[in-house]
Design a protein around this nucleic acid. Sequence first.
DNA 1: TGCCCAAAGATTGTATACGATCGTGAATTG
DNA 2: CAATTCACGATCGTATACAATCTTTGGGCA
Lengths: 242, 242
Amino acid sequence: MTTADPESSDNLHAVFALPPGRALDICLNIQTALLEHKLAPGVKLSEDEVGEIYGVSRTVVRAALQALAHSNLVTIRKNRGAFVAEPSIREAHEVFQARALIEPAVARMAAQAMTDEQLAGLKAHLEAEHVALHKEDMGRALFHSGGFHTAIAEIADHRVFTSMVRSLISRSSLIIALYWKRSDTACESHSHHALMRAFELRDAAMAESIQKSHIIDLHSGLDLREKPRGDSSLSAALGRTG
Amino acid sequence: MTTADPESSDNLHAVFALPPGRALDICLNIQTALLEHKLAPGVKLSEDEVGEIYGVSRTVVRAALQALAHSNLVTIRKNRGAFVAEPSIREAHEVFQARALIEPAVARMAAQAMTDEQLAGLKAHLEAEHVALHKEDMGRALFHSGGFHTAIAEIADHRVFTSMVRSLISRSSLIIALYWKRSDTACESHSHHALMRAFELRDAAMAESIQKSHIIDLHSGLDLREKPRGDSSLSAALGRTG
DNA sequence: TGCCCAAAGATTGTATACGATCGTGAATTG
DNA sequence: CAATTCACGATCGTATACAATCTTTGGGCA
């Protein structure tokens, strides 16, 4: 179980570049909530409110929110406050383009470095995802799916890439919350298991190729057409009241 | 001149995810100082001291330092304070590996999108670098060299990659300050001008290829052998006094 | 003489207070 | 009745004060 625990914040703090402390805890808590889709894009994160929840002053909360803002998970608007980020369609494309470049290269490195223990750890991620899926806990399933991708980067043992991947995956979670269109989530399982086979074989080229296809497939699972979102269309959509 | 002004902080703030304000100004100021090698790795950035320089309270300084820490330009040690980061040898390798993956792809995109105006802008960067080199102002030359790489990412018009490239280049500046071994800096000019030719021809494949070679060349210009650095060697180096 | 420990100084971590800015709603006017 | 303006409330931006922690330095002891 220990090897499979995705919540272990051993060196997770590296992403936020904060010294261990309460601010980091808040960051990690909010990040997890985002990854599990417990916090929707656009939700306001009032400093007072967050501070009261965690029992700290606004000073600490501000540090946490700024760190999250730097990871593009939160948007800070001057004199307005912090909100869960709402990635634009353009940003969604860019994030998945970046993933399509970086993650295959990372998968290749991971395949070469993979130990049996790490292989088992990856499998545990997939099982956790499967269990969550079976319970129809989509949020948790997505969380473990992201954990799988992150774990691969960690196995590649490349901190710069790991940091990038972690950041991109967090942003992907928000993007999926906004733009996911595919109803069948089984797509995950197939690609991930195919990737596992490549890792078992230590076939770097195969891992790279599968991961690239997988990311492109995820990208295509988004509905990124321009829509008349927001309140501008609201009046038109409703017509006259009554 | 306007198109060539590399200091323009138009959307430079996107890297730090801070609302416009004094904290951002401090970030940008310190970042520029780092890029110009006016601030050496390891230098302590006392909150009081920085605050007095810019005429703000520690609150603002802390926000700036945390933003810089998130960009890996500054290291914050609990109860110790903030220091200009000292990238390890491993980190140096990783940063240039990341650049070798990302920047060629970005160069390809830029070559396809390049307008004549943007081409002129890039040329201006090279000229500025040349002028600084002629004045033997190495710091400023390096600054413009980095600006050239950043400008390419901006032309590619991909914010996610641009942000990554900017971050990697900033870190590269620290790495070069610590590990640069090559005395001839003319290598820059050659690769950069070759890249310009590819851009003029709108040859995406050529631009990608040249950029990849260029990054690998830069990487090889570093002396990344393990050395007995630091004070541990100091006593040995000095022997007994007198 | 060298090492260990303790107290003072300096610096950061956190909380709180006050001023500035923005959003909202009611009142007023065309 | 609709549009505009103004004042109020809420929230953030910043400064300052106090508490916690680390570093340093001086003295004591083996």
